[in-house]
Design a binder for these strands. Structure first.
Lengths: 152, 152
DNA sequence: CTCCGGAAGTTCGTGACACGTACTACACTA
DNA sequence: TAGTGTAGTACGTGTCACGAACTTCCGGAG
């Protein structure tokens, strides 16, 4: 059968689904859901208050409560009361959550490397640069950690 | 604050989330869910049997039944018995489903055009070509229609 | 010091959507 | 005709999203 031709919208939407499926599959292989895996990524760098978590993940307060409840039940995160404000809780990773998040990210990274293995280095770097600029300019959710700005 | 540096995995995962959010928001503005919008896209070209729908959308038979039930209740699709095999149903779009699917895709297309408005044409074409090749090579779910192969 | 408005988070009810299991109706083959 | 397999549905379960209402706590004004 003839290979289909994809315009930019089709390419981006289908690529989005492909990457999303890789994340979901990798999460399932770690015994967690895609949402829990995202939570672990968001918490990777430092503890975050519940309200801020909801903002970062673009979900409501009640959804945040449920997601953190289930992650806590699974032993992946803990809630600590903020000493300065007893209304507020800080959510942080347990050792188990940190380790699982690490191996999850390694698995996703490996699968993405396989996905783009046939893309020449120059095109891959352009893909990286263009998508980076697009997600930064459009305030994409930070559901995968970034590195600090590196020297040129 | 310093702009973060994203490697290829971070860029792809965050871009995936961004595009997914555009689809979800556009679907909600049409009064449907993201899954229902995907269903309308899959059915856009021709009616599909239930079993094949599940395969195309990468969901189980029971999930397919539920999704089609809710879309049928919303007046977006109909089921027809296959004359050759009375076990089988073909699912097709209603006029309302076809129209809603069309305006949904136009809305997503417009938002994606805005997303990449600042990307130079040459880079945009390379992005399109690279992502197209990646999604075709990796059998991404066809949750957005393609055009038939066009003459060079 | 007291009171009020607002913040932080939880609870509850609801609905979508995913899965697996078991079932019914139907098709095909020996 | 009987046995095997297919197509789809019903049911139970769990996750995850939302909005409304609630409790606890904080900070500022009077």
């Amino acid at each position: 059968m003839a290979e289909p031709w994809l315009d930019i919208t089709a390419a981006l939407v289908r690529a989005s689904g492909l990457v999303s499926d890789i994340c979901a599959k990798s999460a399932a292989e770690h015994g967690v859901t895609a949402q829990q895996a995202q939570l672990l990524c968001v918490l990777e760098q430092h503890p975050v208050a519940m309200a801020e978590l909801g903002v970062l993940m673009r979900i409501t307060k009640s959804s945040t409560t449920g997601l953190v409840d289930r992650a806590q039940d699974a032993g992946l995160v803990v809630r600590d009361t903020d000493a300065d404000d007893r209304r507020s809780h800080l959510v942080s990773l347990t050792e188990r959550g940190r380790q699982l998040g690490g191996t999850y990210r390694a698995m996703v990274t490996g699968r993405i490397a396989t996905l783009i293995a046939d893309v020449p280095d120059a095109e891959r770097e352009l893909l990286r640069a263009v998508l980076s600029q697009v997600v930064i300019s459009n305030q994409a959710r930070a559901t995968w950690p970034a590195e600090p700005e590196r020297a040129a």
